[in-house]
Nucleic acid binder design. Structure first.
Length: 638
DNA sequence: AGCACGCCGACT
DNA sequence: GTCGGCGTGCTC
C-alpha cells in the first residue's frame, strides 16, 4: 500500500494523509498536484511526502486524480517550505500561491516606445572588470544613471544567456516598467522574453509559466511573483529598485521578494543583483556587514542644486519668496516645473510655527498623531499626552495641526499666476490610464507650465522633463507616524534628483531646515544620512537591528478588539520578549472595523516566532469576531 | 477556513 | 417541546 501526505489550500498548519489507489501508484511524485476528497468537497493539494504506512487508527480516503508532471520541483518546494515557516502562512496556501492560478484581468497591448540614439553607449570594455565580479552571491548595484544601469544589464544578459545558456529573471516594482525594459533588451538581443505580472489572464500566465519551465525562453521580466519562475537553470536574478515597498506582499503569504530571492539564491546558487539609487536601510546594513558586495561603476557627476527654505522666516507658508521667484523664472523661460505635495489622507501632526519643533513620542521618536478630543497618541507604544498650549521646545504659542493638500496649493498658485497653465496630478485628477496618457501627451506638446502633484508624478518619464521641483512642505513626509518616514523621504528626494534634468533645482520648504536628512541631501552626502539614520535605528531598537513581527487585530466592536490586545499584552508580560503596544493603528478604523496592533521585537527572529507559536497562537483561536494578522518584518504599520 | 455538534435560553 | 445562539473541535 502507498500513502501520501498532502498540503491543502487551507490556513491549517498540518498535512493530511491519503491512500493511493493501485492504478495511480506509479504516477505519484513529490510536488505534483492531486485532487482529494476533504469533508464533503474535493480539493486540490500538493504531494509533500510519500509513506508506506498511513495514519494509525484512521480510515483514510483515496486520492481522485494526479497531475501529469510535478508543478513544483524540489527547489521551489524547499523555497515554499521556507516561506511558509518564515512568514506564518500554511504550506498549502503558500504553494498554491506560488503557482500561476490566481484569477486576474486581461493582457495589455504592446506599447510603442522610441529608443533614443543615446543607447549607442553600450561600451563593453568599460565594465568588463565589474562583469567578471558577478559570480554567485548577493550584490547591491548603485548605477549613476539609467544608461549605466541598462548597459550593465545588457552585458550581464549577454554573459549569462548568450554565453552560458542560463536563465535570467528581471524583477521590477510595477507593470509600467516593463515595456521600456523589454524593448531595450530586445533591441540588442532579439529573442523572446517572458512577461509575467498580475494583470495577465490566467491562461496567459500559464503560457508564460510553461515557456519558462520548458526553457523556451531564457529571460523573463515581471513583478514580485516572478521570483517563483520555474526556470530550469537560473543564472541571474536582478531586482530593480530594491527599496521599493511594493515588493512586500500585503496579503498572505506576506513575503518580501528580496528575502525570497536571497533564499532562492541559497538553494539554487546564482548571482543576485539588487539595484538601487538609494538603498533600503536593510540593504545598507547588509553591505556594511559584508553580506552584499557593492557594485559602483563610476562616480556621480550629476550637477544639481538644492535650496532649503526655512518657513519659520516666511510670511506666506505655501509659497515662500524663493519658491515664488523660482516659479516666475521657470514661467519666463517656458520651462516645466513641479510642485510636490504628498496629500495622502494622513498627515496630521502638531508643529510649532516658531521653532519648527514637532511633538514626538519620547519612547519611539515618531510624530504623535492628533486625535479628536485634544489627545496626542503614539501609534507604536500607545503613549498619550494632551496637546500642549505652548511649545515645549521654545515656549512659543503657535502650535498648529499640519495637513495641506494638492487642491489648496493649486488654488493658491492659480490666484497668483493667472496666466500659467497648471495641471493637478493626483488620484482624483488622473483616474484612468487614458487620463495619464493625455497628461504625457500634454507634456510632450509643452501644454503645461506647472504640475501640482503627489507621488503619482514621481516617474522617470515625467521627471525627466522637469527643471525645477518645489517640495511644498517636506515636514508632512518627515513626521508621518512611521519610523521609516525619514528613509522614505530620502529615497524620494534621491529619486527626484536622479531623474530631473541636468543642472535642475530642488527647493525644499520646511520648518526644520537643520534636519540631518535634508542637510545630507543638500550636500550630496548620502553616507552622512545613512550613518545618522543607522545610529537612530540602533538606539531605538528598530530594524534592521531588531526583527519585528506585527500582530494586527481587527473587529467591529471596539471594546472587543481592545480587549483582545490586552489579553495578548498580559500573556507577553510573562515572557522575556520586548514588544510595543497594544495601540490603535494610525488608520484606527477601516471599513467599519477597529484596528489595534502590537509589535514584537528581538534580535533573534526564531525567539519571537517561538513565543508567537506557543503562547499567542492558542490565544488567537479564542478571539471571536476578530481577525488576527501576523506580519513578519512589516514595511507599513498603518 | 468551514462546518457540524452540542449545550443553553426563549418562545409559538 | 423545538428553534437558534455561538463556543468547541475536527477535517486525512
Amino acid at each position: 500500500m502507498k500513502y501520501i501526505k498532502v498540503a491543502l489550500n487551507l490556513p491549517l498548519n498540518q498535512l493530511f494523509y491519503y491512500k493511493v489507489p493501485p492504478e495511480l501508484m506509479d504516477r505519484i511524485k513529490i510536488g505534483k498536484r492531486v485532487i482529494v476528497p476533504f469533508k464533503r468537497k474535493n480539493l486540490t493539494g500538493f504531494v509533500i511526502e510519500e509513506t508506506k504506512r498511513g495514519k494509525p487508527g484512521k480510515r483514510l480516503k483515496e486520492i481522485i486524480k494526479v497531475d501529469d508532471f510535478p508543478f513544483l520541483d524540489t527547489n521551489l518546494l524547499r523555497l515554499g517550505e521556507w516561506i511558509s515557516d518564515y512568514y506564518f502562512c500554511s504550506l498549502g496556501q503558500t504553494l498554491h500561491f506560488m503557482l500561476p492560478i490566481q484569477s486576474s484581468l486581461k493582457i495589455g497591448k504592446e506599447e510603442k516606445i522610441k529608443i533614443s540614439d543615446s543607447f549607442a553607449f553600450f561600451n563593453k570594455t568599460q565594465y568588463n572588470e565589474a562583469i567578471s565580479l558577478v559570480e554567485e552571491g548577493n550584490f547591491l548595484f548603485r548605477p549613476k544613471n539609467n544608461e549605466e544601469k541598462i548597459s550593465f544589464y545588457l552585458l550581464l544578459i549577454e554573459k549569462i544567456v548568450e554565453e552560458k545558456g542560463k536563465n535570467v529573471i528581471l524583477i521590477i516594482p510595477e507593470i509600467s516598467y516593463i515595456p521600456f525594459l523589454k524593448k531595450v533588451i530586445r533591441y540588442y538581443f532579439p529573442q523572446e522574453i517572458a512577461i509575467f505580472h498580475s494583470r495577465l489572464s490566467l491562461k496567459e500566465k500559464y503560457n508564460q509559466w510553461l515557456k519558462m519551465r520548458e526553457g523556451k525562453v531564457n529571460l523573463a521580466i515581471g513583478t514580485r511573483s516572478l521570483i517563483f519562475a520555474p526556470f530550469p537553470q537560473i543564472g541571474l536574478v536582478i531586482i530593480e529598485e530594491e527599496e521599493n515597498t511594493s515588493y512586500k506582499q500585503i496579503e498572505a503569504p506576506r513575503y518580501h521578494v528580496r528575502e525570497v530571492a536571497i533564499k532562492r539564491r541559497e538553494i539554487e546558487r546564482f548571482p543576485l543583483i539588487l539595484t538601487t539609487q538609494s538603498p533600503s536601510l536593510e540593504s545598507w546594513y547588509n553591505v556594511k556587514k559584508g553580506n552584499y558586495k557593492l557594485i559602483e561603476l563610476s562616480q556621480n557627476s550629476r550637477r544639481f542644486l538644492v535650496e532649503i527654505v526655512d518657513l519659520r522666516e516666511e510670511k506666506t507658508k505655501i509659497l515662500s519668496s524663493s519658491l515664488e521667484e523660482g516659479i516666475k523664472e521657470s514661467l519666463n523661460k517656458n520651462k516645466l516645473m513641479l510642485l510636490f505635495i504628498n496629500k495622502r489622507g494622513f498627515a496630521n501632526f502638531i508643529l510649532c510655527r516658531e521653532c519648527g519643533g514637532v511633538i514626538r513620542c519620547p519612547n519611539c521618536n515618531i510624530g504623535l498623531t492628533f486625535h479628536l478630543g485634544d489627545d496626542l497618541v503614539c501609534h507604536y507604544c500607545n503613549y498619550r499626552t494632551r496637546v500642549p498650549r505652548i511649545c515645549p521646545f521654545c515656549k512659543g504659542r503657535e502650535l498648529r495641526r499640519v495637513g495641506a493638500g494638492t487642491q489648496r496649493v493649486e488654488r493658491e498658485i492659480r490666484k497668483k499666476f493667472q496666466t500659467a497653465r497648471i495641471k493637478r496630478v493626483d488620484k482624483d485628477a488622473i483616474n484612468s490610464s487614458s487620463a495619464y496618457k493625455k497628461l504625457l501627451q500634454d507634456l510632450e506638446d509643452k501644454k503645461i507650465d506647472i504640475l501640482v502633484g503627489t507621488q503619482l508624478v514621481i516617474k522617470e518619464e515625467i521627471l525627466k522633463r522637469i527643471d525645477l521641483v518645489g517640495i511644498v512642505l517636506v515636514d508632512t513626509l518627515l513626521n508621518l507616524p512611521d519610523f521609516r518616514a525619514t528613509e522614505r523621504l530620502f529615497q524620494l528626494l534621491t529619486r527626484i534628483k536622479g531623474h530631473i534634468k541636468e543642472r535642475g533645482k530642488i527647493i525644499i520648504q520646511t520648518y526644520n531646515p537643520s534636519h540631518y536628512a535634508l542637510k545630507a541631501f543638500k550636500e550630496g552626502k548620502d553616507e552622512d544620512f545613512y550613518n545618522e539614520e543607522m545610529r537612530i535605528r540602533k538606539e531605538l531598537d528598530y530594524p534592521p537591528y531588531l526583527h519585528w513581527i506585527r500582530i494586527l487585530l481587527e473587529g467591529k466592536i471596539k471594546n472587543e478588539v481592545e480587549e483582545a490586545g490586552k489579553m495578548i499584552e498580559e500573556k507577553l508580560k510573562k515572557e522575556s520578549l520586548r514588544f510595543l503596544g497594544p495601540s490603535s493603528c494610525p488608520f484606527s478604523k477601516i471599513r467599519g472595523k477597529y484596528r489595534y496592533h502590537l509589535i514584537l521585537r528581538d534580535e533573534d527572529l526564531s525567539w519571537i516566532k517561538k513565543i508567537l507559536d506557543e503562547k499567542l497562537k492558542p490565544l488567537f483561536t479564542h478571539f471571536k469576531g476578530i481577525r488576527t494578522t501576523v506580519d513578519v518584518e512589516p514595511l507599513r504599520t498603518m
